[in-house]
Design a binder for these strands. Structure first.
Lengths: 338, 338
DNA sequence: TTCAGCACTCTCCCGGGGAGAGTGCTAGAT
DNA sequence: ATCTAGCACTCTCCCCGGGAGAGTGCTGAA
């Protein structure tokens, strides 16, 4: 595409994302292209419309980008907006004072993203592909009930109450704990599986089975923690003035199963993914754009962090700030060992 | 108040909560009081307006209840609506299949309340007034970093990463763990405090200080888990058609500090509290009613469960269903030991 | 290739008028 | 003393038409 057309497309996207009003040839001429006449701009606009990048709400209105227009913008025209110092400071403060547990950290991260992007945010807890057991603990609750506490790599804590077929005293459990820690500590689920196969029937095998089940859930991420925040920010945007639009987004956000589908999109993709309007799988997100990236304390422990807003979103700002929070959160999580 | 006036007030509340349209004398006559003329009903309505229980959006419109009108209704006229079997079944199913950890259970409870009341819900995790330590575990992460795992009464798990001034090996920690478990197991925070005062300077005192800090946070509930769900249900109600109303509610729900204030209202009150419109502390909840009750696995471990919706709410249905979920959740939590 | 000019289109806003719903009041019936 | 029928009145809601304003596409000249 010619440079001038690109410049005009960029200008339309910029104007429309800030003012939310279809932008006309005169506005472009006076604010961006003083050397061109509005008539020239008009004919360029008409061509951009033919190309499918722009559209008009009605024949005598200004232009606004189509989904493809936004797509072209983010693929070819966008450059990351520098982050103001106060925003940088805000992000640092929020992450520094975040609780040092997974749940608290993920919530804080989601809150921060929502605040700095002025949109809704989603975050899933970092998940390892293959979990290593760092420590294991067994506590007797009732004669025939044991609490299993699993500390995984990355200091993720998993717990589960296990009913056992035979009663077990705390002394027995303590002995078993020591033995299991010695054999499983630092090992991954395949090792636990080997021990399980080798173990004789009885309490130990029973408990090992549960350990494997917990690891499975962890690895498959089916029971993963997914939080959202900042829906109130969406309501400030005119596209959500009538509440039916909000309903649809809320359906996606409040239904964890939708969210996991949404977040799963990122798997195997590059570290930044932008899904615009009709590109979304779920019809509820028509008119919305989703920006996703990953974060986590280590290479092997990654969660997804994302922004949901109207397609008319300040993409360059959103991407820059989202990535800043993701980097900050990753560092912080590595530091406190969440 | 005379019986007939009460009956008319009840009828107005009933009509208005189902149709969301101001109710006129003819509608009441044809649907509730066939033996009375609409003129008679009109004069009764006028008197109820004088008493402050009813109001009209404009002079020639039907009547709708004021906040005091709803207050009179819930205090004197409301009787609990029986719960249909399918709803009962739904509640039972949701609770039966709920995850057996605090986080998951609280989220499931909130989800269930939102679903059966068709409004937004809030839930705080059950909190003990005085926490007893059931089990304690120390894991060495780095030479000078220890993970403290506290298992409290009711199988609440608290964890914290503690940087220590002096390095500690896992062997040392294991010994210390055994000693602390023996002395603190089954005891509450006052006992921990006694041990802390008596302990000589060093690792043990340092760790005991952290244990007390965790218990403090737990007892004061400042870092408590508060979740909400079902905001999408609110959007179905006509009073939330313009999204600014939703914004205000979302501000309350998404700001945990508001929520904790809201939930704290219940402390020291009866087991069911209904806050209607202007009775709300926070101005954001004008036009909204909040119904709160408590739930939890035991007498000493209680959380708050609530419904937030428009003042035009089916109170008798909401209260009945909320209490049903609270009872069910309490039983389930006691059963699985969450 | 660019630009000025022009006719055209469509939305938005405003005011008027009619339909409809519901009220308060009054005089008569029970 | 209480209830009821009738009636005039009020107010909203909705539809309609016209004028202002913004922006377009097209055309012919530079």
């Amino acid at each position: 595409m010619e440079d001038r057309k690109q410049a005009i497309l960029r200008a339309v996207v910029h104007e429309f994302t800030t003012n939310a009003v279809p932008v006309g040839s005169q506005a472009l001429q006076s604010r961006y292209f003083v050397n061109l006449s509005s008539a020239t701009i008009r004919s360029e606009l008409a061509e951009l419309s033919d190309l499918g990048y722009l559209t008009q709400p009605h024949t005598s209105a200004g232009r606004m980008p189509t989904d493809s227009g936004y797509r072209y913008f983010v693929d070819f025209l966008m450059d990351l907006e520098p982050i103001p110092d106060r925003i940088k400071g805000f992000i640092a403060d929020e992450l520094r004072t975040a609780p040092a547990d997974v749940q608290g950290m993920v919530e804080r991260v989601a809150m921060t993203v929502a605040a700095v992007t002025q949109n809704a945010s989603v975050a899933s807890a970092p998940q390892g592909s293959m979990a290593r057991i760092k420590h294991l603990d067994l506590v007797s609750l009732e004669p025939k009930e044991v609490l299993l506490i699993l500390l995984l790599e990355g200091n993720l804590l998993r717990q589960q109450v296990i009913p056992t077929t035979e009663p077990a005293t705390q002394t027995q459990l303590t002995r078993l704990t020591a033995r299991l820690n010695a054999s499983l500590g630092g090992r991954a689920s395949d090792e636990a599986r080997r021990h399980y196969d080798a173990a004789p029937l009885g309490l130990e095998k029973e408990l090992l089975g549960r350990v494997i089940a917990v690891l499975d859930i962890y690895e498959k991420g089916s029971e993963s923690l997914v939080v959202h925040d900042g829906v109130r920010n969406l309501l400030r945007h005119p596209e959500f003035a009538e509440s039916s639009r909000v309903t649809q987004v809320l359906e996606v956000l409040e239904e964890t199963r939708y969210l996991t589908i949404l977040l799963r999109q990122l798997i195997g993709e590059s570290d930044l993914q932008i899904v615009i309007g009709s590109e979304n799988m779920t019809s509820q997100l028509q008119g919305c754009a989703v920006v996703l990236t990953t974060y986590g304390p280590s290479e092997r422990l990654k969660g997804v962090l994302g922004v949901i807003g109207p397609t008319r979103m300040a993409y360059s700002q959103t991407v820059a700030r989202l990535q800043a929070v993701a980097r900050g959160a990753s560092d912080r999580m590595a530091e406190v060992g969440v």
